[in-house]
Amino acid sequence: MKTSFKLDAHPRRPHPLSEPPAGYFDKLPTQIMARLPQAEARTAASGWLAWLTPALRTSLASVAVLSGFAASFYLSGTPRLVPSTASTAALDAVPRTELVGYLLTSGARVENSDLAVLTAAHPNIAKGFIQASDEELTNALDAQPSEDLTYL
């Protein structure tokens, strides 16, 4: 006849299975603390970014960088173009007598090269004050030393 097993008569083991690895309970708090969510403030600050997918976040960063380049190019490039046009227009508004008076009294010397550069940049600028035909101008220029012709 089998002896019936009685639980009360059996020595009770509080921990019936093998112990965890040595030092397990020393390391466990550190592991748990490392898994905890970060501070609320940081979560709130980056909360809206967390809703974006990684691809969207990359796209957003690229757009921001490109916008920065475009803004810096626009802000630095535009002012250089405006003054040259504006200065030419302002010079056109000055009466001829004042211009001649300034050139005579200031001692400024206008060379052929100056006139050549100016007419090359603005072909019609001389038409208002040079009373000569194209043929006369060509003949006058042909008479100049050969090194000055390179400006035309």
Partner: peptide, 18 residues
């Protein structure tokens, strides 16, 4: 929270382990 974990980790672990 670290104190809480240290206080209850063994009991929770063995409860789960069994």
């Amino acid at each position: 929270f670290n104190q809480l974990v240290r206080k209850y980790q063994s009991k929770v672990y063995w409860h789960v382990r069994k």
